[in-house]
Simulated assay, not measured.
Amino acid sequence: MQVVSMSAELELEHAGMRLDQCLAECFDDFSRSRLKNWILEGNVKVDGEVVTTPRHKMKGIEVLELEAQVEDEVGYQPEDIAIDIVYEDDDIIIVNKPVGLVVHPGAGNQSGTLLNALLFHYPDSAVVPRAGIVHRLDKDTTGLMVVAKNIAAHTQLVTQLQAREISREYEAICIGSMVGGGTVDKPIGRHSTKRTAMAVKETGKEATTHYRVIERFREHTHLRLKLETGRTHQIRVHMDYIKHSLVGDQLYGMGLKLPKGATEELVNHLRSFRRQALHAVQLGLFHPLTGEWMSWQAPLPEDLKALLVALREDTEAHDEFA
């Protein structure tokens, strides 16, 4: 048994929604029935006041606080799934997540996730919130994640994340040949009609993404991006907002973009690339127990490297661009 303390700031779009609905959206690691019970048991505060009515109507600008005892990660089965470990000590694990691996069980994904793998390889993680998972990557985004091996490390890493002290950098391939880098500083909130999608919304939460050009191609650009905030789908939403959505993005993308006269190899690569071209390449943080600054790099996965080669060869094949 452990005590979990979490908070979330609501947005104006939550106005008129019930408290239990808002909790389910903000704290989606927990089931709706568990969240409802916590409301009834007095474990939820709205702007500092305990509210025990699940149907309580929200104004959309409140701060929710949840403090409750959580049992071990029962209900989730340990599974013998390989984990690519970049670094490990007594307190943290740095994981290089492959494409297709869901991080945490949710609707439609009760098994086959990173959490299931952690419970198998590290049985003691059952007493740590979310089996030690501190932050997430989308199913089809690859790269570095930190996992805590004990409650003390988890608490400290969550504090770092909230204070924006954890450094996260990504590489991506976007549609369109960009002239230079820049910053997207636009708030992000839930999409008004697509409940699985996010969007730039003035009523959303602040979100800042910095990007710079690594290499330009005829109709595509290889980027390095750095997050100041960690909103859901942030890079994908921001790049789509500036009309440079990521190659292969099935949710936010602008579809297949073939340069005029593209080589056959590039055409094949672009047509077969069915996931967002995004990789968490660098992760830096203060060690939760020693306080030492540490950082790690993860090389690009093979599919991204192959796509870059095809883009480079296509560019070189067209003298008018070179």
Rank of each mutant, 00 (worst) to 15 (best):
M6T: 13
L10K: 08
L12F: 15
H14W: 14
H14Q: 08
Q21I: 14
D29E: 14
D29Y: 13
S31G: 06
R32T: 09
M58E: 12
G60D: 13
E65R: 13
I81C: 04
I81F: 11
D84A: 13
I85F: 00
I93S: 06
H104N: 07
N116S: 12
Y122K: 00
R130V: 04
A131E: 10
G132S: 05
V134Q: 02
K139Y: 12
K139T: 15
D140Y: 12
H154A: 11
H154L: 07
T159V: 15
R168I: 10
I173P: 01
C174S: 01
V184R: 00
S192R: 13
G204I: 11
K205I: 00
A207V: 10
A207Q: 08
T209L: 15
E215F: 04
R216T: 04
L223H: 01
R224P: 08
L225R: 00
L225H: 02
H238R: 02
D240P: 07
I242P: 15
H244P: 14
V247L: 09
Y252H: 13
L256W: 05
A262D: 10
L266C: 11
V267G: 13
H269E: 13
L278Y: 01
Q282S: 04
P288S: 04
P288F: 14
Q297H: 01
A298H: 00
L300G: 03
E302Y: 02
L308V: 04
H318P: 05
F321N: 03
